[in-house]
């Protein structure tokens, strides 16, 4: 017996596949363009030469020193950004929750403020600040990380906030302190382990944002990965496009993998 419900489900699944397929074609077209572009030689023949070059780490750092430098700088930036972001946010947000709840609105406001201050505006205002940073710390690209922390702030705040909401920090820390732990131990041994997922996702966001950042680095004339790709795009576009595509695929694989991990931890929470 073919029911009324079954008919509707079939219609729904037809609509689903049509919409998803059309969207996927749109999403795939430029990516196919990148793949096509990086696998063609000057005569229009297929070749894997570009990708072979990309895999050859030594060759890259020899032939494309700027790209290698940009990549190194971006990795350093990512590390600095994540570390500063975590050291700044996790203790502060926990502390505010535990001891100075009156400040929670202020902290939230400040953390979400960068949403209304686009990177391009921040660059304008940061110019004098960075002349001081350069004066004290030197002109290394890595100090851009201080500004990146500001860019990451809203997203990191939200994900850590979700994590803190899920656990009862107050009871946890009171329990730990009644057992004789000091604040430092409470933070490292009790709060942080319980915020694992939130900290991980905040760090992931920070890394993604840092590796993709172009505006601030370009306007401050520092070379990070994106700026290197941009500059290289003018002379040897193929290798530059290949790097872009590789980064995208890598990010997708990480996120796709995380979606399975996240799902499992969620169901575990429901069971307990």
């Amino acid at each position: 017996m073919s029911g009324i419900r079954a008919t509707r489900r079939r219609r729904q699944s037809v609509l689903r596949w049509v919409v998803v397929t059309v969207s996927m074609v749109f999403f795939a077209a430029p990516l196919a363009g990148m793949l096509d572009f990086t696998t063609k030689d000057a005569q229009g023949r297929r070749t894997a030469a570009t990708w072979a070059k990309l895999v050859d780490v030594e060759g890259i750092s020899r032939d494309y020193p700027d790209l290698a430098a940009g990549f190194t700088a971006s990795v350093g930036l990512a590390v600095l950004t994540v570390v500063v972001m975590l050291v700044l946010l996790v203790p502060t947000m926990t502390w505010v929750r535990l001891r100075v709840p009156g400040l929670s609105r202020t902290v939230e406001f400040l953390c979400l403020l960068p949403l209304t201050v686009p990177a391009i505006v921040l660059v304008v205002g940061l110019t004098p600040v960075y002349s001081w940073v350069t004066y004290f710390l030197g002109e290394s690209t890595i100090w851009l990380g201080f500004a990146y922390v500001i860019l990451v702030l809203p997203y990191a705040y939200r994900s850590i906030d979700v994590g803190l909401r899920a656990i009862d920090v107050k009871t946890l820390s009171e329990a730990a302190r009644s057992l004789g732990a000091g604040w430092g131990r409470v933070m490292v041994r009790v709060v942080l382990p319980n915020l694992r997922t939130a900290v991980l996702s905040a760090a992931f966001l920070a890394v993604a944002l840092t590796l993709g950042e172009f505006t601030i680095a370009n306007l401050f004339s520092r070379t990070n990965l994106q700026v290197a790709m941009f500059l290289l795009g003018k002379s040897d576009a193929q290798i530059s496009v290949a790097v872009g595509l590789a980064a995208l695929v890598f990010a997708f694989i990480v996120l796709f993998g995380l979606s399975f991990v996240g799902g499992r931890s969620h169901s575990r929470k429901e069971n307990s």
């Binding site: 363009g33 990148m34 572009f37 790709m229 530059s240 496009v241 995208l248």
Partner: peptide, 29 residues
Amino acid sequence: TSLCGVLAQFGGVALAFAFLATFGATGYL
């Protein structure tokens, strides 16, 4: 959702190159 999570942050240099490689002077479309 994973693909969109990546593409939503995909602005910038690589995105510009992707469209150049697709619709630019030598693009395949």
